[in-house]
Design a protein around this nucleic acid. Sequence first.
DNA 1: ATATGTTTTTGACATGATGTCAAAAACGCG
DNA 2: CGCGTTTTTGACATCATGTCAAAAACATAT
Lengths: 206, 206
Amino acid sequence: MRPREFDHDDVLRIAFDQFWRKGVRGTSLSDIARDAGVQRGSLYNAFGSKEALFLSAYERYASEYLAAIQKALSAGSLRQRLDAFFDVTIENMCAGSPPRGCPTTRGLMELGPAEGEGLDENARKAFADLMTRITGLLQDALSEGAARGEFNGAPEISALHIATVTRGLALIERAFGDESKLRVIAAHTVDLMLGEVDAQSAMRSG
Amino acid sequence: MRPREFDHDDVLRIAFDQFWRKGVRGTSLSDIARDAGVQRGSLYNAFGSKEALFLSAYERYASEYLAAIQKALSAGSLRQRLDAFFDVTIENMCAGSPPRGCPTTRGLMELGPAEGEGLDENARKAFADLMTRITGLLQDALSEGAARGEFNGAPEISALHIATVTRGLALIERAFGDESKLRVIAAHTVDLMLGEVDAQSAMRSG
DNA sequence: ATATGTTTTTGACATGATGTCAAAAACGCG
DNA sequence: CGCGTTTTTGACATCATGTCAAAAACATAT
């Protein structure tokens, strides 16, 4: 057994950083190999393919990201939780210069519905899995909120709605690069969930 | 002046069909050239680059799509208009087998935030433009609805919210490939906009 | 210590993509 | 009938992914 000459996790971090900044399509294995001081062939030997390397790097990211979401959704009033959720989400998308965007959204569009016949099921599953988990966490938060009387909608569909908005934010970010717009949408979404908009407009019109 | 041997619009239609089915990344100019019965070099001569060809094809699509959206948003009650809007949107995403997804969303993630430094401003602008126009049409519909007493929220932010949900739907489609889920989210969004959810839950709890 | 076996590394190779370029071809027009 | 302009065509350069076999490096058994 000849020992590996590079650190597996180092490569994953370096690779994901590049994937995040330049997209999966815009990052070549030569780039990563140079950055990591590894031979290109070694990456193939260790990970199998570019997509597999991306997936490994992505899953590393996903678990960290999910932990951050979970933490954000687990303290304070429901409004505070949802605000914190969107805060983490938007921070994540807008970090870096230029902003790196959302890796899940980008990856889903770059890899998920792959070319021709052979769609990459593993990639699609990884992305879908993160989205499902986030939706689950949202649903838990909403259910708790409902139990505490902070929310009077249906947790399941509302969680799905918020998850959808979250994905939409990633597109708004790419199209307009305007973080403040994301914040406005997020705040409005929380208001919608918590019925504040209707209450306010009822007050205005009443 | 030697005359062109192929029809410009035919090529655009053929190209967009391929881009739509296989993604920009997954479609090579050789594919398009073969399908269109044209030499690859002729495409470069006529369009300049793959991205430029995609953009030409995309703008053709965008104007048609926008017209369909506009039509959907211009008849009946506000609820009917929003329902029709989502109907057109979801039909558009789920058409084809396998479903082709949303070209705008996909293109924005494939081309908009391009690799490295040189992000493709033209592409990003084209996608952002469609999103802006759709948001504008939504805002008009909501404003009219507000004037007729069918809506009591703020048209501007609500239109942005719906546009965001619309983008999110494209991701849901890619991740889960479940059209019914899209319909549920769309219906819920309309209900949210029109205050039906709160009214219903108020009735339930009252 | 030495031989063996297993895994990694390394470089060459195959394939296919984008994009460029110059030469040839085809047409309108003076 | 030639002239000039544009398109076509094929060759070429470059770069990407991915494969493969040979060489290298270490663990382990004898």
